[in-house]
Amino acid sequence: MKLGVLDQSPIGRGEDAVVAFKHTLELARAADRLGYSRFWVSEHHDTTGLAGSSPEVLLAAIGANTSRIRIGSGGVLLPHYSPYKVAENFRVLEALYPGRCDLGIGRAPGGMPLASIALRNGAPKPPEERFPETLRELGAYLESGPPLGPEHPLAELRATPRVGTVPEIWLLGSSGYSAAVASRMGAGFSFAHFINGYGGQGAVWDYLRSFRPGPLGTMPRVNACVFVICADTDAIAEREASSMDLRLLYNEKGEFGRPFPTAEEAAAYPYSEWDRARIADNRKRMIVGGPDRVRKALAAFADSYRTDEVIVTCIMSDFRLRMRSYELLAELFDLKGR
């Protein structure tokens, strides 16, 4: 099984964005060395706990700090942007790092409503039915699909720089909608199990059953992304997971400005019955444990998604524990030997 990384550049307690990006680059170098398949970075806006607001800029630095691993966006939030500009950004990245770039595309807002308004320069949110058309335009500018028809007002436009390779294009989603669009457009599909612990396997099955070549690709590609907390023992992992439990709970209560909680804070928190029910439900988005437990759980997770590649995201209260989690996973699945 192949493992990739989704890194959201989390800002730890007592840290700032400068430290968060240093950690992202250190983690990217480690993932490259350890044999991970991909290193994706996310896009979030007006979010105090996550530093990554511009994946394209961050990917340029990650590419310069790595030599083998595929690098990509997890993902660019296309409804906010011109497909032409997105194509140019990724043509630049593909020219810098040929054959290593993934363009992962999402539809989520990526932040609070004011950030969405600012990103669109006050323009209204595009209607849902516009999304496939925008993807076709993107494919035309990247030359992964047919050019825009002669009746299109931008039919003669070409995105620069001109390069001989094209990024792999993935649609990212936490529901069946993105899977259905990906299957019609020929894109790869990555299910965000770390966002929604329900329905992903069915969405992937529908994608594989319905896939046909299109403007974004010719072959089906599937992976799924899940929170993983792996430590040297089950006890250490569970202690660390309690911090993540509380972080997700804070987010559900709209308390986004809080720093990442410590295990002590999690142990002392006065949980209500509703809180405990939400924590139990959120654990469906996570794989937690020592090496033996995690190896079995990840293998079963991959089988359930009919894929040989899982994207893991390890967010922990201490960067050293986060790095150790990725090191243990690489050892468990012999990533260097692949």
Rank of each mutant, 00 (worst) to 15 (best):
L171Q: 01
G217T: 05
Q201D: 12
R209H: 15
S178I: 04
G186R: 00
S190T: 13
V181M: 05
A182K: 01
E168R: 10
S174G: 11
W205P: 07
S190Y: 06
S210H: 11
S178W: 02
S178D: 08
I229A: 13
L216R: 02
G164M: 15
N223A: 15
Y250P: 04
A203H: 02
L246C: 02
R212K: 14
F227M: 14
R221L: 12
Y250L: 10
L172R: 00
V226E: 09
A231R: 09
L216T: 04
A241G: 12
G254Q: 07
A182V: 08
V228D: 07
F189N: 01
M219N: 12
P215F: 10
S210R: 15
A180N: 07
E255P: 08
S175L: 03
M244I: 12
G176R: 01
Y198L: 11
A192F: 02
V181N: 03
V228T: 13
Y207T: 06
R239G: 15
T218I: 12
S190I: 12
A241S: 12
V228H: 03
D206N: 14
L172F: 00
S175T: 05
H193Y: 05
V228I: 13
T233E: 09
G199L: 00
L208H: 00
W170E: 10
C225T: 15
I169R: 00
Y250I: 05
S210V: 05
E255S: 14
L248D: 05
A180V: 05
M244Y: 10
Y177T: 09
V222E: 03
S242I: 09
V228F: 05
M185S: 02
F227K: 13
L216K: 00
G200D: 04
W170R: 03
P215E: 12
R247D: 11
F194D: 07
L172C: 02
V228G: 08
A187I: 06
G202V: 07
P220C: 06
P220E: 04
E240K: 12
R221P: 09
L248R: 06
K253S: 13
